[in-house]
Design a protein around this nucleic acid. Structure first.
Lengths: 137, 137
DNA sequence: GTAACTGCAAAATATTTGCATCCTT
DNA sequence: AAGGATGCAAATATTTTGCAGTTAC
C-alpha cells in the first residue's frame, strides 16, 4: 500500500528516485509548491533540469496540475485521487504570503461555486488568495 | 475628450510617447495582450525595458491588470473605469480553455468572497476556472 | 530647472536542448 | 537489452538594474 508507487504505476511511468522524492514532497506539503520550493528542498536536490522535466511529466500524466497566479508565479498542486490525466478536481483555497512567500493550503476554506455564462463548461476552479499569513502577522 | 490623455492624467503620471502608444494598443485591441505582442507591434517599437517599465507602471496605477494563464504566459488587460491605483475593482473570474488555450475575462462573473482563518490578511484573490469555452463547445 | 522617462549595456534569472551515461523494467 | 530518465554543459529566453542622455511639466 505504498501510495507513492501506486500513483506512479497507475500512470505507467517508471519509478525513479527523482520522481519518488518530488512526489513525496507534494504528499507531505500542506499546499501547493512552486518550482523554486522543490529546487530548494534539501531532501530532493536534483538538477534544475530534472525538476523541470519531472514536473512537466507529472502535469501531463495528471498527477499534479498548475495554478496560475496573477503575480506570475506558477504553483503546482497534487490532484485528488479521482483525477484522471487531463481531468483535475481539486478544491481547496491556496494562500500565498506576500512576505515569507510560502504557500499554504487552506483546507477549511472551500472553493466557492462559480456560475459560468451559458456555453462554458467548467472543469476545474482554482482560487489563490494572497496577503499576509498568520506567521508573518 | 482624448481618452488616452484622460486616462493618463487621472493617474497623475506624465504623458509620454511610449505610454500613449502602448495605451493606444490596449484601447484598440479586442482582448488581452502579452508582453511580446506589445514588443512586436510595429506602431510601438520601444526598447524591451521600456515596455517592461511601462506595463509595470500601468499595473501599479490601475490602468491595466494582469491575467494568469495556464501556459505561463502573462497577459495584460485594460481595467475598467472604476479601478483605482492599487485597488483593482475589476476583480472578475478568468477562464482558461483547455482546448483552444485562450484566456477569457468573465467580466460578468464576480470573484466570490473568501473567508480566511483568523490571522490571515487578504490582499488579493485570483479565481481561475478552466474547462471548455463557448467557442470550442 | 527638476523630476521623471527612455535607451543602451550588462547583469541576473529562468527555461530549453543536446548528448553521454545510468537506471528501470 | 532497450527505452527512458538523469546530469552536465551550453544555448535561449526573460527580467532586472545602473547610468547617461532626453523629455514632460
Amino acid at each position: 500500500m505504498d501510495k507513492l508507487l501506486d500513483i506512479l504505476k497507475k500512470r505507467h511511468i517508471s519509478v525513479t528516485e527523482g520522481r519518488k522524492k518530488i512526489l513525496e514532497l507534494f504528499l507531505k506539503s500542506p499546499g501547493a509548491l512552486a518550482h523554486a520550493d522543490i529546487e530548494r528542498s534539501t531532501s530532493a536536490n536534483f538538477d534544475r533540469v530534472t525538476v523541470y522535466r519531472t514536473l512537466q511529466t507529472f502535469v501531463e500524466k495528471g498527477i499534479i496540475h498548475n495554478i496560475p497566479t496573477a503575480d506570475n508565479a506558477i504553483l503546482y498542486a497534487l490532484c485528488k485521487d479521482n483525477c484522471e490525466a487531463g481531468h483535475h478536481h481539486d478544491n481547496h483555497v491556496h494562500f500565498i504570503c506576500d512576505n515569507c512567500d510560502s504557500t499554504i493550503c487552506l483546507e477549511k476554506v472551500a472553493v466557492p461555486e462559480v456560475k459560468l455564462p451559458k456555453g462554458f463548461t467548467k472543469k476545474q476552479t482554482d482560487v489563490v488568495v494572497s496577503g499576509i499569513c498568520i506567521e508573518c502577522k
